[in-house]
Design a binder for these strands. Structure first.
Length: 422
RNA sequence: GGAGAGGUGGCCGAGCGGUCUAAGGCGCACGCCUGGAAAGCGUGUAUACCUCAAAAGGGUAUCGCGGGUUCGAAUCCCGCCUUCUCCGCCA
């Protein structure tokens, strides 16, 4: 949510962001509706003021045991008039809120122009593509050959689902525990959030498009399965006001994620890369605005440290305007080098600044009993199991068609060093 | 899933159609008192939105949420959410 003040006083600033994102938005319509709403509200407030005044008079007369016919008649008139005004105001406000909520976040100045992922800019790179003297296999080939998946899932559940078997299932658990240990050691609080949210709340956590593209609703309820634990984590702080000493709040959240991935035709969706269900360890931070940069960096470093320990070669890119999610102000993706030589996203670090906090109404007091201000929220993948496992499989396969388990994960795999054929 | 009892300000807690501009207490802030403190005394103590160039000021709303009855609702009626207690079912 963008401050209404900016919408009213500095529409140029918003147009700039919209242009950078390449998104259309009826900004003028929103401004008009807002104007009308203010006018109607003012009128309704005045009527209520009148009503309150006369009400007092009636109370006074009645108290003295007098009749107040004249006043009551007046009140009845005001009532009719007010009812009309109120209905109009309410309608306008609904429209206004709906539009206002769908206005994307202002972009950070660092975000480059551009429409598609082609325009994302590389920031850094780590690790080298391993030179191999054998023909590399895709993760899907490896998974099939090593008896790590059962594709019956596509029949019994649908495409985009797999049964993960044996050492692959174990690898997923190992990755999660490894990441949780790492982050809790750094003082992050471990949370397992609810895996569903009420629709009403969910709409505050993310933008409307996501509902069509990604969200699974739960039949006969008002609930949706979460697409990422970022959403219940933001919701956990709804309507809270923190003391400044309480910030930052740092969390590591564990949850499965459910995504329809509708409208992703043409995107890479082979094997386990784009599943409708996967597990993810998420980092989430609530902080004061002035510390945004510091914690964005911290989250980024945490993530990179993990991939480095797993010996996954990667690069970091900053997403261009068109590719940055509507709720975020700036996003860095970590892209892992895959067997085919392409870099593909495996994690994503974002700051929403106060956009999410405004929607969820999360504030802090700058001074005790002093001025209140919205907090900033940041989120970064710790590790998404499916994509990270995929990167491990493709990068750490050997000439025998086995998978070498990264050293960092071996303790979490009961000391196992390789995933071999059974 | 069934039955019952609740949800009031930062917290506790009263109020059950007009004086609620929400009693009282706790907490907090400031002041007096004190060598200093405690106690005591006094004063103040919410949020959001609208208005205003801004501040001051003014207005409106808010007693879980949403409707309704009424000239007028914290108070009456209906629906929902939620907490607690008991029963049933269950990993």
């Amino acid at each position: 949510m963008i401050p209404i003040k900016i919408i009213r006083e500095d529409p140029e600033k918003i147009m700039e962001t919209l242009k950078k994102r390449g998104k259309e938005f009826p900004l003028e319509e929103l401004r008009e509706i807002d104007k009308k709403w203010r006018k109607r509200k003012k009128e309704a407030d005045k009527l209520r003021h009148k009503r309150n005044n006369i009400g007092e008079k009636i109370a006074e007369k009645k108290k003295k045991g007098k009749q107040a016919e004249e006043e009551i008649e007046k009140m009845q008139e005001i009532k009719k008039e007010l009812e009309e005004k109120e209905e109009e105001t309410k309608k306008l406000n609904h429209k206004r809120e709906k539009l206002w909520m769908s206005l994307p976040n202002l972009l950070d100045s660092e975000v480059p122009k551009g429409e598609t992922e082609e325009d994302n800019k590389e920031i850094s790179k780590w690790g080298e593509k391993l030179e191999r003297n054998f023909k590399t296999k895709t993760h899907l080939e490896l998974a099939r050959e090593l008896n790590l998946i059962d594709e019956k899932a596509s029949e019994v559940t649908g495409e985009g689902f797999y049964y993960l078997k044996n050492d692959l299932a174990m690898l997923g658990i190992a990755l999660q525990k490894f990441t949780i240990d790492k982050l809790t050691e750094k003082g992050y609080e471990l949370i397992e959030p609810p895996f569903m949210l009420r629709e009403k709340i969910y709409k505050k956590a993310t933008n409307v498009d996501k509902f069509k593209e990604d969200m699974y609703g739960v039949k006969d309820t008002d609930k949706y399965l979460i697409g990422t634990s970022e959403h219940p984590m933001a919701a956990m702080h709804k309507d809270e006001v923190y003391q400044k000493e309480e910030l930052p709040k740092k969390y590591v959240a564990i949850s499965p994620c459910f995504r329809k991935e509708a409208g992703t035709h043409g995107k890479y969706r082979k094997g386990l890369y784009r599943m409708h269900q996967f597990n993810k360890i998420e980092q989430f931070i609530v902080c004061k605005p002035e510390n945004e940069e510091k914690y964005f960096k911290e989250l980024q470093e945490n993530a990179e440290e993990i991939y480095q320990e797993l010996k996954i070669p990667y690069r970091v890119v900053i997403l261009c305007g068109g590719d940055t999610p509507k709720t975020q102000a700036k996003t860095y993706d970590v892209e892992a080098l895959m067997a085919d030589g392409e870099y593909r996203e495996i994690g994503s670090n974002s700051t929403s600044k106060d956009y999410q906090a405004r929607r969820m109404n999360i504030k802090y007091e700058k001074e005790k009993y002093g001025e209140r201000e919205y907090v900033y929220t940041l989120n970064n993948t710790g590790v998404a199991t499916s994509r990270t496992m995929l990167a491990i499989m493709e990068n750490h396969q050997n000439e025998k068609g086995e998978i070498n388990i990264p050293k960092a994960l071996q303790p979490y795999m009961n000391g196992k060093k390789k995933i071999k054929k059974k």
